[in-house]
């Protein structure tokens, strides 16, 4: 049967796929959460100019912003890794 299905590859696709495919959006959510309830900062994609409603009661402290930035940085790094995989002849 292993002639027909490469179980090793399948296993690896499932695990790494889960880490990247589900883990990264989750990490992105964590980043957003850390910034909560501030509006999405320009650092994410530069598309929001911080014009969200000022209903924010608590603003994320410097630590929160740093942690959030770390989350987004990891997501971006993973994207870069993905592009690297493509360029290096999948």
């Amino acid at each position: 049967m292993n002639d027909w299905i490469n179980l090793h590859a399948l296993w690896e696709i499932a695990v790494v796929g889960l880490i990247c495919g589900a883990g990264l959006p989750a990490l992105f959510a964590v980043g957003l959460r850390l910034l909560n309830p501030r509006p999405v900062p320009a650092t994410v994609g530069g598309q929001n100019d911080g014009a969200a409603e000022p209903s924010a009661s608590v603003s994320a402290g410097a630590g929160g912003i740093a942690a959030a930035s770390l989350c987004f940085a990891v997501v971006l790094a993973a994207v870069a890794w993905g592009i690297y995989l493509i360029v290096n002849g999948s």
Partner: peptide, 28 residues
Amino acid sequence: IAAIGTYLVYLISRNLVQRTRDQGFRIG
């Protein structure tokens, strides 16, 4: 993978104001 990702994302972001949440995830 998508089902687990969706579940996690909603779990983590459940306290966010919907507007903030949607803006953020649209970029993502």
